[in-house]
Design a protein around this nucleic acid. Sequence first.
DNA 1: GCCAACGTTGGC
DNA 2: GCCAACGTTGGC
Length: 154
Amino acid sequence: MQYWLFKSEPSEYSIDDLRREQVDHWDGVRNHQARNMMRDQMKQGDLAFFYHSNCADTGIVGIMSIAREGYPDHTAFDPNDKHYDPKSDPDRPCWYMVDVRFERRLKRTITLRELKTHPELADMALVRKGNRLSIMPVTAQQWDLILGLESTKS
DNA sequence: GCCAACGTTGGC
DNA sequence: GCCAACGTTGGC
């Protein structure tokens, strides 16, 4: 079992959007590191945190699972799409995505501010200054520690 | 291959 | 809205 964290701006796509859809594709990732993780590493059944970025209440808000492993991100081929990449070629796809399934909302938002107070999480790219990776791995230890915070008072 | 300019991310 | 950090682009 592997664990991940996905960032999204809630004004673009929030945990409630995913709850409504239940299963959706995670398109629009245009970063090679994040692409590689989706294309090469994620396995069906892996679990992931849903993180709200760039908003008033940044933090982890829910849990989802990988419903379908990496496949070409078709939005890269669509000139009308926000994430269109004119250099991408359907015969040699450059960008990949996975499908994610809504599992549950957390009982409360575990904020970035709170995560930063735990020295055990200092290794996470998430809490490091200037980090811009929108998808990142989470270790089992980090996963358990973070989930353990859910039932504590913030 | 270097590096300055530029665009984007994302916390605050 | 500001701005730091980072990735990408393009001139040389």
